[in-house]
Design a protein around this nucleic acid. Structure first.
Length: 582
RNA sequence: GCCCCCAUAGCUCAGUGGACAGAGCAGCGGCCUUCUAAGCCGUCGGUCGCAGGUUCAAAUCCUGCUGGGGGUACCA
C-alpha cells in the first residue's frame, strides 16, 4: 500500500540524513502518513519533522551547533528521499510538513491496475489468512427480531466482510440460545396461548392459570399468532399427551418458528451465516464424541481442576475475581440448572480449543457490557490468551416514534420488529443507516423520520452513481463503442485524476476500518466516491459522438468501468446492493 | 455509589495530536435540445457541553464538573 510504502521511505530518508550528518542522531518516531484535508497540501502529508524538532534541537544544543527550524528538518529529510514511480511532487510547507502528490501519469495507469485486480480491489493483507470468527446477531429465538438487533446484524456482518477483505479467513456464526430459562418461559407462554385458542384449561401440573402469562413470560401478540399456527398445523394433539411432553413439543415447534423468522429476516438483510451454533449441543455428549462427554462436562472439569469453582448458598460459583473479573458468577444455579455463563464458557472452549479459531469477535449490545470482565477471566481459566477474544460492544439503539421513545421489551411485547422497518424503508437504506454510525455512540432511530427520509437516504446517492455508470456503459455499447485497446494515459482532466485518487483510497479505508474495527468508514467513503464520480460525470463527457474523441472515449470507458467496480465493491462490503438501474 | 459509552451546524452524524473543523438532510438561490436532475453549482449555518491541565500544536490526550444512554440479578 502506498501509505505504508511512503512511511518507510520517509523513515529511511530520515535515517540516511542522520547517517550523512545533516540531522543529529535522535530517535525517529513512528512515521504517520495522513490524508490532508486541503487539496493544495497534496495527496499525503507527513508531520514527522514537527514531531522530531524538540529532540533534534536538544541534540544540536548539546553538540553546540545552531538550531534548526522544522522546515529545515523537513528539507533535509526530503533531500534524502529515494524516488518512486508513484511520487509526483514533494514539497515542504510551514510549519514543517512534507506534502507529497501522486504522479499523474502513474495515476492514469492505475485504472488498468484496478481493473486487472477486479473484485479483489480494496483487499489488503492484515490477517495473513488467520482463521477467525465473528459471532453476531445472536438474538434469543423467543420472538421476532427487534429492530435494535439490526444494528448488531449490520455491524457484525460488515465487520466480517471487512476482515475478510483484510486477509482473514472469516467465519460468520449465529449462536442459537435454544436452552435455558428464556426458552422455557417462552414455551410456557406459547403453550398457554395454545390452550386459550382451543378454549381449554392448561394442564393442572403446569401451574399455569388460563389467560395469565406467567411472571417473566412473553406477552407479545406474536405469541398468539404462533400459537394459532400450532393449532392450525397440529390441532389439539398437544392436549392429549402428558404436560411435560406437550411442553417439550410446543417448545420445539416454537423454536422452529422463531428460527425460521430470524433466518428470513437475515436473508432480507442480505446476511448469510456459515454456521448456526446450538447452545443445547454444548450439553450433548454426542455432539463432542472426541471429548468422551459433553463440552459442558469438559469445561466443568477444567474449572474444577483449576480451582475456579466454589459452593455458596446452594449454587456453584466461578471465582472470576481471582482472575481479574469484577465479580463472581453463578455457574450452576441452586436449582441445579446451569446458568448462561457456563454456556458461554463451554461455547468459547468449543470455539478456541475444538475449532481452533485464532481470533474470535463477539458482537454484543451495551446491555451486555457488564459481562466483559468475566469473559476475560473465563479465558484465563481456560488457559487461553484473553487477547484472542474481542468483545465488540455497540451502544444501544433507541426507537422514537411520534416524538416518543418506544420502550422496547420482547417479553412485554412492545418491541418494534425488524421486519416492520424493513417493510417501511427497505434493507439497503436500513443497512446504510445502521452502519454509518460509529458503534460506540448510541443512536436514535426515529421511525417517522426514517420513513420520511428513506427517499433521501444517502444510500441511493451511492447506488445512483453505480446505476449511472452502468447506464453509460450500456449507452456506449448501443453506440458501438468498446474500450478495446484503450490508452488510459490520455486521462489527465482534474476530475479524472480526482476520481482515480478517490478509488485508490479504498484499500486504505479497508485497512483502517479493519484494523480499528470501525465499519462506519465504509458508507462515508462510499458517499465521497460517488460524489467524485458525479463531479467527473459533470465535467467529462464519456461517450462522444465526435470521431476525433474516439481514443478519449475508450480511455474514459475504462475509467468508468473501474469506478463501477470500486463502487460495487464498497457497497458489497456493506452488504448493500449495487443496482445497474434505479 | 461504582463501572462502560456518548456530547461537534436547526436535525442525523463524520473527523489517525497537526495546516482555515466537514458531510448528508432541512433552508435560500440557480442549472436539463447531448451518456439517468435519485444529479450538479452557489449560499446560509459552529463559544467542538463547561472548567482546568499536558503539548511547538487539542474537537482529539489527562483531571474535574454538567447532561444523556447502558451496566452493576442464582434473566440472557
Amino acid at each position: 500500500m502506498i501509505r505504508d510504502d511512503l512511511a518507510e521511505r520517509i523513515y529511511k530518508a530520515a535515517k540516511k540524513a542522520q547517517r550523512k550528518g545533516s540531522l543529529p542522531k535522535t530517535e525517529i518516531p513512528e512515521v504517520i502518513v495522513e490524508r490532508p484535508r486541503r487539496e493544495e497540501h497534496g495527496d499525503y502529508a507527513i508531520s514527522l519533522p514537527l514531531k522530531m524538532i524538540a529532540d533534534v534541537n536538544r541534540a544540536l544544543k548539546e553538540a553546540e551547533k545552531p538550531r534548526l527550524s522544522p522546515l529545515e528538518v523537513a528539507g533535509r529529510i526530503v533531500h534524502r528521499m529515494v524516488e518512486a514511480p508513484y511520487i509526483g511532487q514533494v514539497e515542504v510547507a510551514p510549519p514543517g510538513f512534507i506534502n507529497i502528490s501522486l504522479d499523474e501519469g502513474w495515476l492514469a495507469q492505475q485504472v488498468e491496475a484496478i481493473l486487472s485486480v477486479g473484485d479483489a480491489f480494496g483487499d489488503v493483507d492484515l490477517g495473513g489468512g488467520a482463521r477467525m470468527q465473528v459471532e453476531f446477531g445472536s438474538a434469543n429465538p423467543t420472538g421476532p427480531m427487534h429492530v435494535g438487533f439490526g444494528r448488531n446484524l449490520v455491524l457484525g456482518d460488515s465487520l466480517a466482510s471487512l476482515l475478510a477483505a483484510a486477509g482473514y479467513d472469516v467465519q460468520r456464526e449465529y449462536y442459537v440460545n435454544d436452552s435455558g430459562t428464556q426458552i422455557a418461559k417462552f414455551a410456557e407462554s406459547l403453550y398457554l396461548r395454545y390452550c386459550e385458542l382451543l378454549g381449554r384449561e392448561p394442564a393442572s401440573e403446569s401451574g399455569l392459570q388460563a389467560g395469565e402469562i406467567p411472571e417473566g413470560g412473553y406477552q407479545g401478540g406474536y405469541v398468539v399468532d404462533w400459537a394459532q399456527a400450532l393449532v392450525t398445523a397440529e390441532g389439539e394433539r398437544f392436549l392429549e399427551m402428558p404436560y411435560e411432553q406437550a411442553l417439550d413439543q410446543v417448545r420445539e415447534k416454537g423454536l422452529a418458528i422463531a428460527m425460521e423468522n430470524i433466518r428470513r429476516d437475515c436473508e432480507r438483510m442480505n446476511i448469510h451465516y456459515d454456521e448456526w451454533f446450538s447452545e443445547r449441543s454444548l450439553y450433548d455428549p454426542e455432539a463432542a464424541p472426541e471429548l468422551g462427554g459433553s463440552i459442558f462436562d469438559r469445561v466443568m472439569s477444567i474449572l474444577r481442576e483449576g480451582n475456579h469453582l466454589y459452593m455458596k448458598e446452594g449454587a456453584v460459583w466461578f471465582n472470576a475475581t481471582a482472575l481479574g473479573g469484577d465479580k463472581d458468577e453463578v455457574v450452576i444455579k441452586s436449582n441445579g440448572q446451569p446458568g448462561y455463563f457456563v454456556s458461554d464458557i463451554a461455547y468459547h472452549y468449543n470455539k478456541f480449543r475444538q475449532r481452533g479459531f485464532e481470533w474470535v469477535i463477539d458482537v454484543w449490545g451495551a446491555d451486555h457490557q457488564g459481562h466483559a470482565p468475566r469473559m476475560k477471566a473465563m479465558m484465563e481459566a481456560l488457559r487461553l490468551d484473553p487477547e484472542q477474544l474481542t468483545l465488540y460492544i455497540y451502544q444501544m439503539v433507541t426507537v422514537v416514534e411520534s416524538g416518543e421513545t418506544v420502550r422496547l421489551s420482547k417479553r412485554a411485547g412492545t418491541q418494534v420488529d425488524l421486519r416492520e422497518v424493513l417493510d417501511d424503508i427497505g434493507p439497503d437504506a436500513l443497512r446504510f443507516f445502521l452502519v454509518a454510525r460509529a458503534a460506540d455512540s448510541q443512536m436514535d432511530l426515529d421511525l417517522d423520520l426514517a420513513r420520511q427520509q428513506s427517499d433521501e437516504n444517502p444510500v441511493y446517492y451511492v447506488q445512483y452513481g453505480h446505476a449511472r455508470i452502468a447506464s453509460i456503459l450500456r449507452y456506449a455499447e448501443e453506440q458501438g463503442h468498446t474500450d478495446a485497446g484503450a490508452d488510459v494515459s490520455l486521462l489527465a482532466h482534474p476530475s479524472e485524476m480526482a476520481l482515480i485518487r478517490k478509488m485508490l483510497e479504498l484499500p486504505e479505508v479497508v485497512h483502517t476500518a479493519a484494523e480499528r474495527l470501525e465499519a462506519h468508514h465504509l458508507p462515508h467513503y462510499a458517499q465521497d466516491l460517488a460524489a467524485t464520480f458525479h463531479a467527473f460525470y459533470r465535467d467529462c463527457r464519456v461517450v462522444s459522438s465526435d470521431p476525433a474523441d474516439a481514443d478519449l472515449t475508450k480511455a474514459r470507458l475504462r475509467l468508468a468501468a473501474a469506478a463501477k467496480l470500486v463502487l460495487a465493491r464498497t457497497l458489497t462490503l456493506m452488504g448493500v446492493g449495487a443496482p445497474d438501474q434505479m
